[in-house]
Simulated assay, not measured.
Amino acid sequence: MGASGGELLKQGAWAPATSSELLLHLWITGVAAQLVVGWTVVVVGLRALKAGRWIGRVALAGVVAAVALQVVMHARGAAPQAFYLAPPHADLFLIGALIALRRWRLAGQAMERPIGLLAAAGRLALPFWFWLWPLLAFPRLVLARSLEPREVGAALLAAAVLALATERGVQRPLQRRLEARPMLSLLTCGALVGSLAIGAAALFALDGLPERASAAVRAEEAAVMVRAPLQRRCHMEEAVIPSAAACTVPVGARADVVLWGNSHASHISPALLAWAGSRGHAVRQATMSGCLTLAGRDNGIVSDACARFNRQAIEEWGRVRPAMILVGA
């Protein structure tokens, strides 16, 4: 569960540069689809096992598990994964499933109105989100600045109005038509999902649509992907500090300048090598993706792997005592 979110993370969707993408918010449809499919399998399985009475209990357990997963992931510095992947978002989905069951033994009719209000809010939630993100992102792109509170308020109001119009003019009529024809509903959903899957597979196989860019732009992108020697050998994805012998320039020298940090630090290694080489300094690089230079994990910012990497680095710096340590994060 969460393959679409994982792919977004690989593409750098957590980076600030992508925070104004007009269609980035559509990742939630992938999360919703995964949760729907997963919960459908659970419900069908329980009914097949004659254990339908356990559906509510399983949903409640899922809510608790999803909340616990969010807490653990944030504590271990996995906030991007907690945001984009499907399992951490199962709590709200399963709360909706519990409401849909409407099995409130003590409440009786007293809960009908609150549940009805929650159901109405649920019907508006998705169209509201679909409208809100572009209404917030597009003005930021045009104005090249953050929105003021009154502008955010106007976007919220516009999104609410558009969501209501979408729910009444599109979502509700379509739902009524499909509810009356369950087979047509299944075929329609299958066709839509199949079309999306084929389109996504084609885009993935083609590595996007590179032909949209000019030859000069494609050549520049290819050049960006060429990594300098130290970046290629000494920028790590795992919690193993690269050896000093392989990651010191000139080879065999005792490094008096150390480059330590995450990928931001790694990107400056070519400039650092040029600067140090002109002054007769030896450079040692030890960098790890997404790893801030913090040794303790109790701050909730770095992962266990990152903390291990940094402890290894600190031990080495203590032994060799370089004249200069450049920290990049």
Rank of each mutant, 00 (worst) to 15 (best):
M1R: 10
G6Q: 07
G12H: 00
G12I: 01
A13H: 03
W14T: 03
W14K: 10
L23A: 05
V37L: 08
V58H: 01
G62R: 00
A65D: 05
V67T: 06
Q70N: 14
V71W: 07
M73Q: 09
Y84D: 04
L92V: 07
F93D: 02
F93A: 02
I95S: 04
A100N: 11
R103Q: 07
W104F: 07
A110H: 04
W133V: 01
W133H: 05
L135A: 02
F138I: 04
L141Y: 01
S146H: 12
R150L: 12
A154E: 01
L157Q: 06
R172A: 13
E179G: 14
A180F: 07
A180K: 09
R181W: 15
P182G: 07
S185P: 10
V193L: 13
V193F: 10
A205N: 15
E211I: 11
R212A: 09
A213K: 15
R218I: 03
M225I: 11
Q231P: 09
H235D: 06
S243F: 04
S269K: 03
W275D: 09
G277L: 04
G280T: 00
V283H: 04
R284K: 09
Q285V: 07
L292Q: 13
C306A: 09
W317N: 12
A323T: 08
I325R: 10
G328I: 02
A329W: 06
